[in-house]
Design a protein around this nucleic acid. Structure first.
Length: 494
RNA sequence: CGGGGUGUGGCGCAGCUUGGUAGCGCGUCUGCUUUGGGAGCAGAAGGCCCGCGGUUCAAAUCCGCGCACCCCGACCA
């Protein structure tokens, strides 16, 4: 991984304010998100400000997901942030799961409330309560609702975007007449997430089912897509839960079915958060800074006019013309014609900010009828014809998007391994970093043992296994040696 | 929440051991010259030294208590 990172950074040394990935990946991440102006720390522990470039990334994630939610029949609604204390007692696992991280509102205007209100960590309870009032008949089903919201989870250890005390996300909540239909919804939404993350964010994922100890508090089954960061650690990019009738029972969500029987609904929930921004940074970024996939980059092309006072007039006129052509072609292009910064400074600045493509216009280009394009993903410079530049740029942005996915996919493959024993798994994690697929008997003790020994957790039980790993059909549990029931991805995780 | 580290102009740091005038680089402002990979010269501005309390004639420096961030654990969709 280290050599790869250095190779990517190219022959020229990177920006000095950014710690190299190979030196300290965690510091690299913190340097990049601040230098690229995505966020700032807020005065409250674990809380961050999303600055405009960071927030716009989130807005583009919202747009990409929201479109897909609508296409699959969902509608948005909004439920309150404050949740009555009593609601948390209605689903046992759910209380136990979230109690340690709940902030409470206990007073209003100096007077104590008769019932404390929690700042929601997720909305299953309050939505369950509302659904119990809305759902009476099979004709009311399915209910397909999504909400875009902020949620609170007071984690002990926070990291910008990946784990913050308050974060932004979307949570879908659906209710169905049958288990079969609810389970189909769970998989459909996992597909939606996969499609978005792979196509729009150019991040390959491993899809699978969570082990019982890793599933959502209150779910029957949880499914996830897991992305691999450049340090080999995993981030759960999105989850989708089959909640069975657990919340329906707790909140009494019943309906009269066609057969005139009163039944509990089957519910699902699914979510993706601003954690996705952390994934974008850590999957694509390099020692020069951010590298943004064109589909979600706030600025896709930065146009930089070059030349001294004598050329300025002509260069600027041509630059404005090109800018207009790009914008007319639907490209998110901006021009930086500030005179106080020189071209070289701007090159570094926009590379740090991850702008996918830079377009340079200078006196030499005017003379020869060319412009210079520089790709952020490969750091290549290309001289292309001035005529038809909008079409060239559009094609190149598409190629960059594809190339970024290909690179991330190759990295994921190179850092995916199989292990037969705990010792082997530990060695791979130490020496190569990445995900390790191993046999597992299904016992929680064996899973816990892996975590104790290696700090790696079970990410998921994949639906499909990469063919380069050649799993033996007679594989055994990596801990106890009994016949394996599952193959599980193990990795250290954020 | 436990162990370790850090906190000094916007950013990165030195100064702290051995108390006494707060310093450097970058950035910022002004002017001129510059412009194809972080420009040069000249001048200037900018600091309750994380907070509160203590010791002292005197505290960035010593002591106590907080707070924040980073690293490693525990916990955690």
């Amino acid at each position: 991984m280290r050599e790869a990172a250095q190779k990517e950074a190219g022959q020229k040394e990177a920006v000095q304010e950014i710690t190299p990935q190979s030196e300290d990946f965690s510091r690299w991440y913190l340097d990049v998100i601040r230098k690229a102006d995505l966020m700032d720390y807020a005065p409250v522990r674990g809380c961050i400000v999303f600055k405009p470039d960071g927030y716009e990334l989130w807005e583009r994630c919202q747009a990409g997901l929201d479109r897909r939610f609508k296409e699959t029949g969902h509608r948005n609604a909004y439920f309150p942030t404050l949740i009555p204390a009593s609601f948390f007692e209605k689903e046992k696992e759910h209380v136990e799961g979230f109690n340690p991280e709940l902030p409470w509102v206990t007073h209003v205007g100096g007077e104590k409330l008769e019932e404390p209100l929690a700042l929601r960590p997720t909305s299953e309870t309050i939505i369950g309560y509302m659904y119990s009032q809305w759902i009476h008949s099979y004709r009311d089903l399915p209910v397909l609702i999504n909400q875009w919201a902020n949620v609170f989870r007071w984690e002990k250890r926070t990291q910008p975007f990946l784990r913050t005390s308050e974060f932004l996300w979307q949570e879908g909540h659906t209710a169905h007449a049958t288990e079969e239909e609810a389970r189909a919804e769970v998989m459909r939404m996992l597909d939606v997430y996969t499609d978005f993350v792979e196509n729009d964010l150019a991040i390959p994922v491993y899809r699978g089912r969570k082990t019982p100890s890793e599933k959502f508090a209150g779910a029957v089954e949880t499914f996830s897509i897991e992305a691999m960061m450049k340090d080999g650690k995993a981030v759960q990019a999105a989850t989708s839960h089959y909640l069975g009738t657990n919340f329906a029972a707790g909140f009494n969500i019943r309906f009269l079915d066609r057969d005139n029987q009163l039944k509990l609904v089957h519910t699902t929930s699914w979510g993706a958060s601003t954690r996705l921004l952390g994934c974008i940074v850590m999957v694509h970024g390099d020692d020069r800074g951010l590298v943004l996939p064109p589909l979600i980059a706030p600025t896709q092309v930065i146009l930089i006019p070059i030349g001294g006072p004598k050329d300025r007039e002509m260069v600027l006129a041509e630059s404005r013309q090109i800018l207009a052509e790009l914008q007319a072609a639907g490209v998110r292009a901006r021009m930086d014609d500030r005179e106080e910064y020189r071209p070289g400074w701007k090159f570094n600045e926009y590379e740090m900010r991850g702008v996918p493509l830079r377009l340079e216009v200078g006196p030499r280009d005017l003379a020869s009828g060319h412009v210079v394009l520089a790709r952020r993903d490969t750091l290549e410079k290309l001289t292309v014809a001035r005529a038809g530049v909008a079409a060239t740029v559009t094609n190149l942005l598409g190629e960059i998007q594809k190339n970024m996915y290909r690179k991330a996919l190759a990295f994921q493959k190179e850092h995916s391994f199989a292990a037969d024993t705990l010792a082997e798994l530990a060695e791979i994690l130490e020496q190569k970093t990445g995900f390790v697929l191993a046999g597992w008997c299904g016992k929680a003790e064996c899973e816990a043992r892996v975590k104790e020994e290696t700090k790696a957790t079970a990410r998921n039980i994949p639906f499909e296994v990469p063919d380069h790993l050649h799993l033996s059909p007679s594989r055994r549990c990596l801990v106890c040696g009994e016949p394996a029931v599952y193959s599980v991805w193990f990795a250290r995780a954020y």
